[in-house]
Amino acid sequence: MTRPLRIAFYGSSLLSSYWNGAATYYRGLLADLARRGHRITFYEPDAFDRQQHRDIETPPYAEVRVYPATEDAMRAVVAEAAAADVVVKASGVGVFDDDLLAGVIAASRPEAIRIFWDVDAPATLAEMRADAGHALHRAMPALDLVLTYGGGPPVVAAYEGFGARACIPVYNALDPQTHHPVPPDPRFSADLAFLGNRLPDREARVEQFFLVAAARLPERRFLIGGSGWEGRGLPANVTHVGHVYTRDHNAFNASPRAVLNIARDSMATVGFSPATRVFEAAGAGACLITDAWEGLEFFLKEGEEVLVARDGRDVAEHVAALTPERARAIGAAARARIAAEHTYARRGAEVDAILARAAAEKIAETVGPVLTRSVV
């Protein structure tokens, strides 16, 4: 464990999961880092109606600074980076992203650890490949670390190719205190349920894996949660329940016979990118059906801890053949595996060790030249 550090974290939102898939990830990691003694201030803009859809109050593990989505307010919170030992700019804040990145780098002290934390590495890397003037190209020499939500070897190689000193994936995980089995809720009763907002690089795969399966099994009940689907034509046996707050995620996962995970196009292509939903569902003891992606075996074993589908026909066959007994057995095995190997306590320990190494390197960088000059 490193010495307690003051961490300034500039992200999308800690308080709201509304159009903000990174919320659970932030909460799990930052809660564990706080338990290790680190002092965290999380800066989030008042944007995208997230503050009107909060699903937690200000947590005990972080001070949360909600600032107006204006340039003046952004500059004011950027200036506070000067007081931090670790300055984190996350991807996808959604408001003044480029200015935030440049600003916190400029405001931070020379001995501070500067981190870009990418919660959508495939999208960010695609932007960097397409734009030689991308803000991250300019910022890369000043960054000590790039941490990513997932992506594995392909993402590490890509970031190192762009000049990152170090790129380290920090995967999603389970917080057993927040995601766990609960009694079934009739609101979420179904043979198969899927939770995810309607996004351009997800919709085709939802059609392929979820809606095709529903059409093949008209006698079965299907459930879809998330924002945006109200404007989409759905089969008669599919019920849309709208945005599902995190307080209801356990019931959403524990009530259906099975829960479907569908990776976005970019995440599926890169692989090694399990969504937060994978760990939430496993934590609730759900029987998970997922689309196939490289690296899945690192997290769950096919056929025993998860069912894998290559298309909607596979999904339909899994649903048709799944008995309540087998569903419970798969869910229990997944929960045991994730609880043993993939918790935020483990991820927090990983990040704590990363920060300890980075802090030692910064000391060597800043103190070493001073000692050399004093000897000369």
Rank of each mutant, 00 (worst) to 15 (best):
T24K: 13
T24E: 11
G28H: 01
D32N: 13
L33R: 08
R35V: 08
R35A: 14
G37M: 04
H38I: 04
R39S: 14
I40D: 01
F42Y: 14
Y43I: 03
A47F: 14
Q51I: 15
Q51G: 15
D55V: 03
D55W: 02
P59T: 05
P60V: 07
P60K: 07
A62M: 07
E63L: 12
E63F: 09
R65P: 02
R65N: 06
Y67Q: 07
Y67T: 09
Y67S: 09
P68C: 05
A69P: 03
T70K: 10
T70N: 09
D72M: 14
V77P: 00
V77E: 05
V78M: 07
V78Q: 02
E80I: 05
E80H: 09
E80W: 06
A81C: 09
A81Q: 04
A82D: 11
D85G: 08
D85A: 06
V86Y: 07
K89M: 14
G92P: 03
V93H: 09
G94S: 02
D98Q: 13
D98K: 14
L100D: 01
A102S: 13
A107Y: 08
S108K: 03
R109H: 06
A112C: 00
R114H: 07
I115K: 06
F116R: 02
D118K: 05
D120T: 10
A121W: 07
P122H: 02
T124F: 06
L125A: 00
A126R: 11
E127I: 11
D131S: 13
A132K: 14
G133I: 10
H134F: 10
P141G: 06
A142N: 11
A142C: 13
D144Y: 10
D144E: 09
L147W: 12
T148V: 06
Y149E: 07
G150K: 02
P154E: 06
P154K: 04
V155W: 02
V156T: 12
A157S: 08
